[in-house]
Design a protein around this nucleic acid. Structure first.
Lengths: 183, 183
DNA sequence: TGTACATCAGTGAACGCGCGTTCACTGATGTAC
DNA sequence: TGTACATCAGTGAACGCGCGTTCACTGATGTAC
């Protein structure tokens, strides 16, 4: 086996991993096909075989993000204690530990929103949200059931966005959140 | 007076206006010094005299945005009826009618956050928010007074962000919001 | 009132950069027979 | 078991694009005297 085989073997996964690293380290505006290829050590024309273009790669990345998001939320929802609070904590935790990915996931402009896998992954995540948060099932919207669910979602999502924009205090912020979720 | 005088006269204002138009029409990623200069019909090196670099221009633009934001919020806060609800409506209204500017204002990465004017303008806007929203003055944080204020802010901000990302239904969304603000 | 001069605002050409895409190619793999 | 061939995955050079910055310049304005 030569030191560097012509075929990578798992280039697709390697590209996604590198893309996520760049996303967290440098942000979305620094994420390019060339930068990703460079990080993996491959020709910058290679990603086209796996993702088509940059939008395709970003969409796959966001899809994987939503899958992981859904798993985290589901785990929180079935944990002991108040499931709504646990859900909120998990939501914020996800945004805090992988802000680049989180922001990408909610940046529809750069994503292929009509992608089937992407849509399914987002629906999966939001299903947990609306199921757990709809403690007062008053409405029957397709997107979100009930005002309580929407309000909870907005509250926790707004918290994440303000936090990631540096508009909230650093450490006591999470402590505060727990209190608000009481309401 | 010649058809096109050498000196523009009000280039600074014209550049800002053009920048805002591009921001709303094409988004932040299309906003460049060259695009702005092109729109005004001026050399692309000209903006440097007024703003230094792109970051400087964006910061001024965001500062003006926060000033207008503060005025809208203040007007809502002093209107008849429930001030907290009016404030929420004004917040969403601002984000809805000028999404590009709103997103720029909450995109610290591209702004000079340490700019004095910018900081003052944001503080001005947030002051109205915390004053009105702090119906239950339990805390004494520097940024936001009380849990109620923070919760209201997160709620309405999250609503805006989800709305601008196309994650909420189109028209009935605003109607729903009014109900949630009851809580 | 007039003149000299400093300063300011805008020009336009040039530079280098990183990007996405294209294209003919080559190495490797798998499959049909 | 072996051979031919199609397909796939990655290469590397080339192209054109838009960008920010720099620089010597020029037109216009204002100020000192």
């Amino acid at each position: 086996m030569p030191a560097r085989p012509y075929h990578h073997g798992a280039l697709r996964a390697a590209l996604l991993e590198a893309a996520e690293q760049i996303l967290e380290r440098d942000g979305l505006d620094q994420l390019s096909l060339r930068a990703i290829s460079r990080a993996v050590g491959v020709s910058h024309a290679a990603p086209a075989h796996h993702f088509g273009d940059l939008r395709g790669l970003l969409t796959v990345l966001a899809t994987l993000g939503f899958r992981r998001f859904a798993i985290s939320l589901e785990a929180a929802a079935t944990s002991a204690g108040d499931p709504l609070r646990a859900l909120g904590r998990a939501y914020v935790q996800f945004a805090r530990t992988q802000p680049g990915l989180f922001l990408l996931m909610f940046h529809h402009k750069v994503l292929a929103g009509d992608d089937a896998d992407f849509q399914q992954a987002t629906a999966e995540a939001f299903a947990t949200l609306s199921r757990v948060a709809a403690v007062s099932p008053l409405g029957t919207d397709t997107a979100v059931r009930g005002r309580g669910a929407l309000a909870s979602w907005c509250l926790v999502h707004g918290f994440c966005m303000l936090m990631l924009d540096g508009r909230l205090p650093s450490q006591p912020g999470l402590d505060l959140l727990l209190e608000e979720l009481l309401a």
